[in-house]
Design a binder for these strands. Sequence first.
DNA 1: AGCACGCCGACT
DNA 2: GTCGGCGTGCTC
Length: 677
Amino acid sequence: MPAASLPVARVAVDVPLPHLDRLFDYLVPETMSADAVPGCRVRVRFSGRLVGGFLVERAAVTEHAGRLAFVERVVSAEPVLTSEIAGLARAVADRYGGTMADVLRLAVPPRHAATEANALGATAPDGTAPDGTAPDGTAPGPARAPEPEPEPGPWARYPAGPSFLAAVRDGRAPRAVWSALPGPDWPDEVAIAAAAAAAGGRGALIVVPDARDLDRVDAALTARLGRGRHVSLAAQLGPAERYRRWLAVLRGRVSVVAGTRSAMFAPVARLGLVVIWDDGDDLHAEPRAPYPHARDVLMLRAHRCGAAALLGGFARTAEGAHLVATGWARALAADRPTVRQHAPVVRPAGEDAELARDEAARTARMPGLALRTAHDALAVGPVLFQVPRRGYLAALACQHCGTRVRCVSCAGPVALAGPGQPPRCGWCGARAGPACASCGGTGLRALVTGARRTAEELGRAFPGIQVLTSSGASVLGTVPAGPAIVIATPGAEPLAPGGYAAAVLLDSWALLGRPSLRAAEEAVRRWMNAAALVRSGPAGGSVILMADPALAAVQALIRWDPATHAERELAERTELAFPPAVRMAALTGPADVIGEVLGSASLPAGAQVLGPVAVQPPGPAVQAGAQPADDTVRFLVRVPYPAGTALAVALRAALAERTARKEPGSVRLQLDPAELI
DNA sequence: AGCACGCCGACT
DNA sequence: GTCGGCGTGCTC
């Protein structure tokens, strides 16, 4: 018997098929009516078999002409899919040409039944079904004491800082692209912003790239808010603990949340502020379909719920510059004198052309200025060496003709794993022969030197000084304050209490020379993230950067001017008509299939198709000089920025029509992929 | 994707 | 006469 009141359940069914990406109506049996609340998990019969889904809303009538089936089971009355997240998931799916089911798999964690029953805030201990549990109202959360107004603290260093905080606290929706001053204060600044939202009775959501940044923000939140006022959602928590914390957020017991990428969908109640730190870090790009980026999702959330937004970092992305250029957000930065007061002194070394030509300088990779700076700094504190590659000798070239050594069987990069070890291919593991394929010479020289080899070299250059390395699997959190040489790969730099006395950024051309649209932006980001750990110039901190000072990226670091560099990057991409100036869809798959899809799709006006280009088949096992193993190609379609969602929706519809007809050949659709070249 | 219904060959 | 081939088509 259908429920007496609102008998229709509109269900988001968990099926992966794009042409079934819409809500389906079911009847709620009267016996389940109390449990079948909007947002709960259900099981329904769909085309004969049982599938999971979320009950999105209850309704009095259906639009469906045919007969409705009954909901098979209410899995739990916990309303895990809030209306905000349901709407967001729909918008993200549309934005990225994916399905709502795909997004919901990213947004709602798998149920942990025992945790759901045991967690604080659960219903009566007699085990009866929780009946109409009000998620707010008389929830047993901490009584709201009058919040002290947040002191601007380090935000006072930015002319617009105090007014941003006041607007957050007052329930408004300021949006800022924030150039953080170098130094250790950013986690505290983030925590103060979150506290301002909490003081205004709203929630805050903070997303950082990795677990180390999360630890720092977590500690700052504890210091600013006290214990029990926030949760951290990290991937490495077990499923039970993760679900327990997530439920505490869902049930409104805490409203300040910090986490890594997947926390971007956390159901924070009364969301008043979103924060993303270091949005250029590629960890913010979700690798699962439909490949949403945390920056996009958070800005979309802020927009949809009238929350404030803070997009911060030491460097600035072209996307950040675009948000400022379009007027969506304001730049939030300190004035020049304040920047100079906090930034280390940055000097280029190696005098560029000389370094590139002079064999000895290039082999040592360490001009006199770098060695002298390191030597002097070691008297007063630790010195950081940033090495772009881990390993030993990560790339080799012929000593005579300079040709890069490649594997004869698969053309992979040949490297030395350690001292006294033979050169081997990094892809297939084959040993490389002794003779150069191009000139027959037998000598080798380093093209890219890894962290291990650098540690060996520096240990010899500074006898008696402790050498620490932090890279790959063994990342150090902090290093002692005393003299030490710290060798780290980008992103793995440990904190030094009181700051490093100096930093030397090695092999800078390796970062700048990457064949990527974002190479310069990414180089500046990595350099600034390392340089921000160094003491300020007035406190004696200095950074040696081994690159050509004429390059704009190098100038950005020397002048500590991330905004100008980002604006320049944005101008370049505008000229090339690349994201973020436009929106771009990448279609990867068999050429004939993509051709049909593009032919049948009703693309928005102004769409421009680029391609095809042959794509390397997945995996490194490509024969040297051979044709690509199959006809996998990539097409790009670009449209003016406002037509981005129309493009995604049109391409998804064209792909859906194919899968509905069961035509063979799979095509991957990705919007604004991070790596375009 | 499953699982229907639907119209043409070899079997008890 | 029936059982069954898997070719379109729908899934509340």
